[in-house]
């Protein structure tokens, strides 16, 4: 009978033995394919690629140490908004990740005036350069907000 010594066992290199924090691993949602189609359709390849980066590579503490990873609630609100929103012909909105884990969508209306929405875990804050309007709505009003801003 063979006896195994501790030196015979395989030991994982110390640097590889830490568990990967689950918050940094992106698990695809069941509707992710439909979401990606939506991003491509409304934001183009640039926007689609940026969202892919934000949700897969920007973990807690990104940037100078205080950045929060993308909020699932902010992402859900963003998708609800995009499903209804329309943008002026030839205009591809820009999408940015905010330090508090929100998504910021920026474009110009038909008159060239800035329209911006930041989707957060609590709701959506929007800004209209026309009239310098700043306000906030709850997640329940994404469709109405999209209709309002599409016509802005």
């Amino acid at each position: 009978m063979m006896t195994l010594l501790s030196s015979d066992c395989y030991h994982l290199h110390e640097g590889l033995s830490d568990e990967v924090p689950s918050s940094e691993v992106h698990r695809p949602a069941p509707n992710e394919a439909a979401q990606e189609e939506l991003f491509l359709q409304k934001l183009g390849a640039r926007g689609w690629g940026r969202i892919h980066q934000f949700r897969n590579y920007y973990g807690p503490g990104w940037g100078e140490g205080q950045g929060r990873s993308l909020s699932p609630r902010a992402m859900a609100a963003f998708c609800q908004f995009l499903e209804t929103a329309t943008f002026p012909s030839g205009c591809l909105p820009s999408v940015f990740l905010t330090d508090r884990g929100g998504l910021e969508l920026c474009w110009e209306n038909a008159d060239g005036k800035a329209v911006q929405v930041e989707f957060t875990s609590e709701g959506a804050e929007y800004y209209l350069e026309e009239g310098e309007i700043e306000s906030m709505v709850s997640h329940a009003k994404m469709k109405a907000l999209a209709e309002q801003l599409s016509a802005a």
Binding site: R46, R50, S94, E104, Q116
Partner: peptide
């Protein structure tokens, strides 16, 4: 101004918000 706040066309106003 890092790539999360600039996409080659626009600068994110959140660069200064807060």
């Amino acid at each position: 101004i890092c790539s999360d706040k600039w996409d080659g066309e626009r600068i994110a106003p959140s660069l200064f918000v807060g």
